[in-house]
Design a protein around this nucleic acid. Structure first.
Ligand SMILES: [Mn+2]
Ligand SMILES: [Mn+2]
Ligand SMILES: [Mn+2]
Ligand SMILES: [Mn+2]
Lengths: 226, 226
DNA sequence: ATTTATTTTTAGATTAATCTAAACTTTAGT
DNA sequence: ACTAAAGTTTAGATTAATCTAAAAATAAAT
């Protein structure tokens, strides 16, 4: 049983992410972009991952994860997101700070540690960005979330996640008080630039751009009683 | 400003440990043994550490840490021991389990993380093995500890640390209820094999070998009032 | 159907970290 | 003082991971 390096783990995670969002084989270029490296380096690594039976790889065809590869990637996602919860809930980090540190913590190898951490955190189902945390068997919780941009005027939703994870976006959301759990009602939609006027938590109103409303996920809610 | 690899960090820690206990330049062989590697590998690495100005190195002479090297090593010790406290106090790991995981966690790079962790743990001064945790400035708490084997019959001490850190020794101590904070009075000392009979917490009596009493540190206590 | 552009792979080099075997220096024993 | 032993360094190879430049395959455009 060969052991797997941090770098290999990062490649698996990248492939997992690409296949998950686009739902097809990951191309060399896509992986190179995700990993911030050259296509040549990716080609090299793909050979190694294929030899270890972690990916299905045929030259010129792109790659998908094998079952073992997929399990490893899912476990990495689990670790990453649990650490993010830890950093936010126990160490008072903000949601724009946690990702970078979790990128390191996710590589700590100790199954017992991660199960204890999960228990310590109360078996959270979602991370600070609203992303689902797979359980020990690799099962994700699903949720019927839609982009805020798809709500029609008069409709209400609760913010449950973000599409984009950049610190600048998350900091913007903090400033606007558009955090997870916030209730937003679409008051008006401007055709011109597709910006929307929102009522936040049945209180103040703000205007957000289309870019913002496309990157926020909400769970549709029945109209507020008031 | 060159960055430092995990491997380099481990070498610094090894050198720190050797210089600390023996209080003289660390020899290539000593480092090789501590790092579980060959003397040749150590020689290679010493050149690199010297080039980075982390050690004072002259061929055939052995090495000592420079100020920056020493600072880095101390910070590693700080991180290692804080993580050990976390694992024991928050995640209910036993003191024989924490070291191995802390060996990984100590390499996480985030000054903010470690300060938050320190705060979360209530600024502990000692780790689960009774070893002092340096503060953010690198200052250690000292304590007048002596080996249990140096107590004379009739004298009493409180267990505050261990000399040896092997899981088997720590598990033995758990079994014997000789954990940190335990009060032990030397009842009788056998000249033949230098084993001692102890009264534990003013209650039951047990016999421990010389090897055990040499590897346990106690703080001398005034005789119990009873 | 050719040509052009894009994508992917190979070739050849580089760096960190390691190894074994051989050479060299220092220390210890007679 | 000389020789043997122990300790340390160099020489030469290897492996993971990366890079740039060049070649090859695929896709797109005329
Ligand atoms: Mn993240
Ligand atoms: Mn996240
Ligand atoms: Mn330890
Ligand atoms: Mn310790």
């Amino acid at each position: 049983m060969e052991s797997i390096s941090n770098t290999e783990e990062n490649y698996l995670k990248a492939i997992f992410k690409i296949c998950e969002t686009d739902d097809r084989a990951a191309s060399t270029n896509a992986i190179a972009q995700e990993m911030q490296t050259s296509a040549a380096s990716v080609s090299d690594m793909l050979k190694r991952l294929a030899k270890k039976q972690l990916i299905h790889y045929e030259k010129w065809k792109g790659v998908t994860l094998t079952d073992t590869g997929s399990q490893l990637a899912t476990n990495l996602v689990r670790k990453h997101r649990l650490w993010e919860v830890f950093l936010k809930e126990k160490l008072q980090f903000t949601w724009d700070e946690v990702h970078e540190i979790a990128e390191q913590l996710e590589h700590i190898r100790s199954p017992k540690l991660i199960e204890r951490l999960d228990q310590f955190l109360g078996h959270p189902k979602f991370d600070p960005h609203g992303d689902p945390i797979p359980d020990a068997d690799g099962n994700f919780s699903y949720r019927k979330q839609i982009p805020l941009s798809s709500l029609k005027p008069g409709e209400t939703g609760v913010i449950v996640g973000v599409q984009e994870h950049s610190p600048t976006f998350l900091q913007y959301l903090d400033r606007m008080k558009l955090v997870l759990g916030t209730r937003v009602r679409v008051m008006e939609q401007f055709e011109y630039d597709e910006s929307v006027r929102l009522r936040v938590n049945d209180a103040q109103e703000i205007l957000v751009s289309n870019k913002v409303s496309q990157n926020l996920f909400v769970e549709k809610a029945p109209p507020s009683s008031k």
